[in-house]
Amino acid sequence: MKDFDLVRLKDELGERGILISFSGPFSHSIIEELGKVVRNHLENTRLSRTAMMDVFAVYVEQAQNVGNYLRHWEQEPSGERIASSGIVVIARDGERYVVSSGNLMVQIDVAPLVVYLEQLRALDKAGLKALHKQKLRQPLSEAGGGGLGLIEMARKATMPLQYALTTVDAGVFFTLRVVI
């Protein structure tokens, strides 16, 4: 039991302001259920409806992005570690809400993502709206992704999107942090 200290884990979640955290298989029904939990929680706060829906929207986009990436690896013989690497966390930081997510990625997918994130980080609200308009017309990918999710997160965020890359044995762990 020494390595299974739930009291310590729970204390740490509390200290970090973590309200909801999920790590495990990202099925669509899990995304729906967690979404309900997020909404129920936020409805009991004094948050405006717009802010509440923005937190919910950022959560859905992140969870679906992670889910889509992981699902792609489920079928691959070497993809098991990636397919089970997803996490999404919703935390409170003073007056702000922070929605974060993470998953393992293969190196080859990292560079284009970083280029795209840096492009988004350099844009102001007007620039993000213009890029959104441009991407709105591009067709959906086979996986169902539209390349719009990150722009929508950036438009709802109160500061530029933050990300981190951590090299681990199995590849690169990508973390995205969005402050609303």
Partner: peptide, 13 residues
Amino acid sequence: ILYLNSSSTKVML
């Protein structure tokens, strides 16, 4: 509509 995710927004367009 109460909420549209990004891919639904594309489809709606």
